[in-house]
Each structure stands twice: as structure tokens, then as C-alpha cells.
């Protein structure tokens, strides 16, 4: 508040300012606004994804704040690779590079669920088999490192493996991994019984409803953004089922 006290009453009246300064100001401001309006709208470019640096380098670059750097990098990755209306362009996105980035980001902040949510729900939606497979394997491998905390994304990739990749053995492998590796009592029982859900003769929508409904009911997902993402996913599957 001292700053504003020091400003108070120190100024001359506006009439003391020469007219040409006001004219100068109005012209410059108009030019700035017109210049901005004339620029093309910013778009995300899949081709811009650079190679991920080594984890050691990222740790140095984080200046002792790896968690913050992880969050910022995740936003940066999200900012140019999954935008409204242009996700179709990400057919061109290099899935190996994407996996590298997600892996590094997760290594900086192992407690974060964000890279796994992004891999299983955003990038795995890209209609490219190699991307879906690479993302699924990424989620699975990362899950094995900390099953009791990283199980949430596994259900999505198991359903994806069964329906999008048409690979039931792979889906069952993921589900078995869940039942074999999750030991915490805090994880809902149905999450450990994904195999039964997958073996039932259900469509993708029904399975997703059970899984996402279970996730939401369990209170595991609290972030409004993630709840929105899950709801959007169900809506998309409903639209797909209607066709």
C-alpha cells in the first residue's frame, strides 16, 4: 500500500500534458490493437514437438523445483498438441516423442497423475493404432512402477485395447496386471476385477460407463477438469454408439 500512498497527490493535472502526447498515445494504442487483430490466431502445431532432453538436464533446468517444471511442461505440451477443432492434425504427432516427453514429465513429478491421464484419455484417442499402442504401453509400464497410485489410467487403456485395438488378450493382460499388482485396500474392488468387465459381452460404451461411473462414485477423481474430461469421453462414446 505504501506504493500507492507515494503515488497519491504527486501528479500534476492531466491538462499539463501536451496535446501531442495524447494524440501519440491514441495512435500508438490503436496501432497496437489493429496489429494484434491483424495477426493470425495462434494454432497448435504437431510438427513443433521437439526431442525431449535428458532427465538430468531437466532436473538442472528446474532449478531445484522439479514439480513446478513438470506442471509447466505438461501445460506446455498440452498447449500445442491438443486444441479445440484441430486434434485431427495430431494424426501427424510423433507418438515416440510424445511418450518421451510424458515419461520425462512424470519422472520430474512421480506423484502426478496428469501425464497418465493425458496419455490414456487424450493422446490414446488419436485414431492411429501405433499412437494408441505406444500410449497404452507407456501407461502400463508406468503403472507397474507404482500400482497403488497409478491404477486409474489402466482401466481406460484396457477398454481401449479391447475396442479400438481389437486386442482382447492385451486388454486382459492390462486387467490382470491390475489385479496382480494393486495391493492397497483403498483402491475400489471393481478396479481389481477389470478382467470380468472385459470378458462380459459388452460394448465399449457400457464398459466405459461402468469404469468411469465407478471412478466418479469412488471419489478418486476430484478435479473438475478431469471430471469434465471423463464426462466428455462418455458423451463421445454415446455419439459413436448412436451412429
Amino acid at each position: 500500500m505504501e506504493i500507492f500512498k507515494s503515488l497519491k497527490g504527486r501528479d500534476r493535472p492531466l491538462s499539463d500534458v501536451p496535446l501531442w502526447v495524447y494524440v501519440f498515445m491514441v495512435i500508438a494504442l490503436s496501432c497496437q490493437m489493429l496489429f494484434h487483430a491483424a495477426q493470425p490466431r495462434p494454432v497448435a502445431l504437431a510438427a513443433d514437438l521437439p526431442h525431449a532432453p535428458k532427465t538430468d538436464f531437466l532436473h538442472i533446468a528446474s532449478l531445484g523445483e522439479p514439480v513446478t517444471l513438470s506442471k509447466v511442461l505438461m501445460l506446455w505440451l498440452q498447449a500445442f498438441d491438443y486444441q479445440s477443432g484441430i486434434s485431427i492434425r495430431f494424426m501427424d504427432l510423433d507418438p515416440v516423442g510424445l511418450r518421451e516427453w510424458l515419461g520425462k514429465i512424470l519422472a520430474l513429478d512421480p506423484e502426478s497423475q496428469y501425464p497418465l491421464v493425458a496419455a490414456s484419455q487424450m493422446y490414446a484417442d488419436i485414431p492411429r493404432k501405433d499412437t494408441q499402442l505406444i500410449m497404452s504401453e507407456f501407461v502400463w509400464k508406468e503403472f507397474l512402477k507404482d500400482p497403488n497410485k497409478r491404477w486409474r489410467a489402466m482401466g481406460h487403456i484396457a477398454i481401449l485395447a479391447k475396442h479400438s485395438l481389437n486386442d482382447l488378450p492385451l486388454a486382459l493382460k492390462y486387467a490382470k496386471s491390475m489385479s496382480d499388482n494393486i495391493t492397497s485396500r483403498n483402491v475400489p474392488g471393481w478396479a481389481k476385477q477389470m478382467q470380468f468387465i472385459l470378458l462380459e459381452d459388452m460394448g465399449e460404451l457400457e464398459e466405459a460407463r461402468i469404469y468411469i461411473g465407478g471412478l466418479l462414485a469412488s471419489g478418486e477423481v476430484t478435479s473438475p477438469q478431469e471430471i469434465h474430461l471423463l464426462e466428455e469421453r462418455l458423451l463421445e462414446l454415446e455419439k459413436k454408439a448412436d451412429k
Partner: peptide, 26 residues
């Protein structure tokens, strides 16, 4: 072209704002 255009315009705008403030300064 972009950096020169944006640079010239923004330096002009900031100069105008600075002058406005400077002329009012006691």
C-alpha cells in the same frame, strides 16, 4: 516483419504512456 512491426508499435505505445506519466510528475 513481425518483430520489427510489433517492436516499433509497442515502443511507441510505451513511450507515449511514459511521457504521459512523466509530464504529470511533480
Amino acid at each position: 516483419n513481425f518483430v520489427v512491426g510489433q517492436g516499433v508499435i509497442y515502443v511507441t505505445l510505451l513511450s507515449a504512456a511514459a511521457l504521459l506519466d512523466f509530464y504529470r510528475k511533480n
